[in-house]
Design a binder for these strands. Sequence first.
DNA 1: CTGTATCCGTGTTGATACTG
DNA 2: CAGTATCAACACGGATACAG
Lengths: 231, 231
Amino acid sequence: MKSEKVTRAAPARRRQWYEDACAAAHALDLLGERWALLVMRELMFGPRRFNELRARLPGLSANVLTQRLDGLEAAGVLVRRRLPPPASAQVYELTAWGLESEPIFQALGRWAARSPAHDPSLPFSAASLLLSLRTMLDAERAAGLEARIGLLLDGESYLARLSHGTIAIEPGPVEGVQLILDGAPRSIAAVLYGGQSLAALEQDGALRLSGDRALAERLVTLFPLPPKAEV
Amino acid sequence: MKSEKVTRAAPARRRQWYEDACAAAHALDLLGERWALLVMRELMFGPRRFNELRARLPGLSANVLTQRLDGLEAAGVLVRRRLPPPASAQVYELTAWGLESEPIFQALGRWAARSPAHDPSLPFSAASLLLSLRTMLDAERAAGLEARIGLLLDGESYLARLSHGTIAIEPGPVEGVQLILDGAPRSIAAVLYGGQSLAALEQDGALRLSGDRALAERLVTLFPLPPKAEV
DNA sequence: CTGTATCCGTGTTGATACTG
DNA sequence: CAGTATCAACACGGATACAG
């Protein structure tokens, strides 16, 4: 009959779960579906709207994004929020617990960076780059460095503060910085991880650099990649 | 022409990949398929045969297990190996790089242990329990403790050595130990994580304990669970 | 006995088009 | 802009049949 949409029957649980008490298996129940972790990744540096997520995740279709957002909201990983009236748009934002998933990305990233099959020439989102900076910073090499660096990625600005061998990154205006890097995330990655020279990418116009060039030259030494695994 | 099945154009890759340069996304390309990580989990404490894996992963069907083993082998995460003649069985064994995935389990487990939806009363494999011990040991509380403990889980024996706030676990005979715990992984988990008393489980027959009982009482204080997340 | 392959019913995933 | 509807393709899981 027509009456209501019985979209989902009784039992609430929409998927076959692993039925396993292991906490890691439970994590996979919550965010092991395809695209779920990448949606979370795109929310790690602040709330995003539906179409911002779509734009940053090419290949993810609208209906699947809807399903993932529903599932992650039900899991308590993110919340929908409506921005105050002038904007009045709906955004998706990680909960405090959702934000605590960062070590998962770090573990995955550190491990896969050693994969022989890893291809760094693919599309690269700003969130990926920023997460990789936090993951790959070599605390020893950065130990003595105090610096404020501005990053302009995909038209948004972020502020990175290096201090005592740690790096803090947040979205925001690039004020009071010693150095500004402006370019596509993959260009910055090419310099930090791919061994490309700053000068070459500036020549290309792929990267714009202003401020303390010596700091930039030091910066590119602070994110060593692990060696590839033997297989 | 008709000759072969043009199922998919050129590229050989059997699945849609994320097409994302982010290393974490690449990790998900390699081991993000359903069951893949759980198969790896079951191999973390030594090689296993096909049917051992099946027995430890109820719900995973034979054909899917074959596919996952193929995929993980292609990724360089595990290798097939044939045991020397008397046994002459084929086993699956993690490569050195595959073993390095442990931090992924730890990050997933630590995070999901805070999930409000986590249900520790489900089936629990020996590998899950052993991994959780390495994940959850509180280094400070264990700092002064030197101990050798035998674990008999699902008919196999493991040796755990506590020293300087760390725990090493390997399969092997329980020789020269101060304490032996013999019971289903979930019974041990009930004691370590569920706050159940040793005495009660012994009474049930769910757990057999021999050796230094004071050590056992101390042991159960060394693996504190994080608080549940607010959502 | 161990491991793999094939068939099939079902549910999940994904692309396109469409609606508030 | 933010999703929903529809439908095709595929992945999963169970059973069973096959190979060493």
